[in-house]
Design a binder for these strands. Structure first.
Length: 292
DNA sequence: ACCCAGGATGTAA
DNA sequence: TTACATCATGGG
């Protein structure tokens, strides 16, 4: 076991592990106390995930991030949690009063950079679901089809491989509570397993082409594609138009409603800060959804 | 019982 | 291109 610490004071704008990992961006972590996405902070609780077969565990305590892992995980954490983003500058770029309030209310919330396949399946599951249930569904997938790894006397499940999910039957997935998303997950996993397409391929494309590329996966429309681009592939300009953001547009940016997804997307992207509108969107989503 | 949740798909015009 | 019905499931 390797361990280390990262002083929060060294990070521009700090970090808040709870806001970052329980704001509906990532469903690939689990909290060691069993709870998560219940709206309750668990001070000093460990968060665990598996990346490339390595267990990574992290918690926030006494002004530091403490980590423990099967490998030297500091660079992994810096990449996953985007610890080198200049959060102070990003928050200072809030375009209006509402978004300033959102940034101020959730200091330390960082965008995450999840592994693409897990992010893709997570957001296929997210259709018409509450965040706590999405996390439950993804956890069920991991426990059922993911490789179990033992670390420090505990069992942690990796997110399933495309092959493992492609081999699942629709009925099995429905039994896990996926509902009508079950065939979407199975068929998309099959596409990746067969090499027909891969979410990684979107990384090299211009933003709107990348979004179009991802919609070839079954169960992926423009909104889910934007989530994968923003929360996994580093497209900070992506603004997923979900029910909460559409509500914000109706209440605060009515002139940005242009009818179609693509046109509304361009308008709200310009309004929320262009190249990093997605950062602002993520704060706005968390701010409005939690009511804090 | 009714409504809603980080929507997508298939069909019809 | 846009409009609409349909799709599961659990929690309020």
């Amino acid at each position: 076991m390797e361990t280390g610490t990262i002083p929060v004071a060294e990070l521009s704008g700090g970090v808040d592990l709870y806001c970052t990992l329980e704001s509906g961006q990532s469903y690939l972590w689990r909290r060691s106390d069993g709870g998560m996405y219940d709206g309750q902070r668990a001070p000093e609780a460990w968060y665990e995930t598996v990346v490339d077969g390595e267990v990574v565990r992290v918690r926030q305590r006494e002004g530091r991030l403490e980590w423990a892992s099967t490998t030297d995980a500091e660079w992994v954490l810096r990449r996953l949690l985007r610890l080198d983003d200049d959060l102070e500058a990003i928050a200072a770029s809030a375009p209006d009063e509402l978004t300033r309030e959102a940034y101020a209310s959730h200091r330390g919330l960082r965008l995450i950079a999840d592994p693409p396949f897990g992010s893709l399946i997570s957001f296929i599951c997210s259709a018409q679901m509450r965040v706590s249930r999405i996390h439950g569904m993804v956890s069920a997938l991991a426990e059922t089809y993911g490789e179990p790894l033992t670390f420090d006397g505990r069992t942690v499940h990796a997110f399933p491989t495309p092959e493992a999910l492609a081999d699942a039957t629709e009925g099995e997935l429905r039994d896990l509570g996926l509902g009508y998303r079950a065939p979407y997950v199975r068929r998309t996993a099959e596409m990746v397993a067969d090499g027909e397409a891969n979410p990684e391929n979107a990384r090299e494309l211009p933003y709107e082409e990348a979004r179009e590329y991802l919609t070839r996966f079954v169960g992926v429309g423009e909104k889910v594609a934007d989530c994968v681009l923003l929360f996994s592939l580093g497209f900070d300009e992506a603004v997923p138009l979900d029910t909460w953001i559409r509500g914000a547009i109706a209440d605060h940016y009515p002139d940005c409603d242009r009818g179609s997804y693509a046109d509304t997307s361009r308008a709200i992207r310009d309004r929320l800060g262009g190249e990093r509108a997605g950062y602002t969107q993520t704060y706005l989503f968390h701010h409005l959804r939690t009511g804090e």
